[in-house]
């Protein structure tokens, strides 16, 4: 587009501005794709979350503590040595189901305290939140935050006791902060 007389410069400037506008749109599209590529890292982190949860669950349930205790129905303190987190959870669920009050496992050095200590040491709480939940029949115990986030990875372990059809379920859920 060309014109004559005094409008020559204006026409050229208009063409240039149109050119600038088109390149700005193209640049924005390129930047958008580039940003999308960077955000796509979140997807791989989410898939890694499943691996992390599985590994954390294996390490957590297999770990032992030097000692842990609870108070039985008669008020006596029962101390277990070198007991694993898995055994503590199973024992607690069975005992609560048989009538031992839940708060008999609370307090310094008790089962719930020891389980929380091991769990906290294995999860980076600056980056992730977690919930460890155990269920047996109508009894449940849980540690950590309540879950329910959409990007949560969970690992369930089931233990079948002899003569009982309903298994003990222990589920560890982990999600990013």
């Amino acid at each position: 587009m060309r014109s004559i007389g005094n409008t020559n410069g204006q026409a050229a400037a208009f063409d240039a501005i149109m050119f600038l506008a088109i390149l700005l749109v193209a640049s924005t599209l390129i930047l958008g794709v580039s940003t999308h590529l960077r955000q796509a890292e979140d997807v791989s982190e989410f898939s890694d979350l499943h691996t992390l949860t599985t590994r954390t669950s294996n390490a957590l349930l297999g770990s032992t503590v030097p000692n842990a205790s609870y108070v039985d129905v008669e008020g006596g303190v029962i101390v277990s040595k070198d007991i694993s987190v898995l055994d503590m959870m199973v024992e607690e669920l069975l005992l609560v189901q048989s009538g031992v009050p839940e708060n008999n496992f609370d307090g310094d050095g008790r089962y719930n305290h020891r389980i929380t200590q091991v769990l906290s040491s294995l999860v980076d709480e600056d980056r992730f939140q977690f919930e460890l939940c155990g269920r047996y029949m109508d009894v449940s115990v849980s540690f950590g935050e309540a879950g329910g986030q959409t990007d949560t990875a969970a690992r369930m372990t089931e233990i079948f006791l002899p003569g009982v059809t309903q298994p003990i379920q222990i589920t560890l859920s982990i999600w990013p902060c």
Partner: peptide, 8 residues
């Protein structure tokens, strides 16, 4: 006249 356009 076209210097501004070239700059743009």
């Amino acid at each position: 006249e076209e210097i501004p356009a070239i700059l743009v």
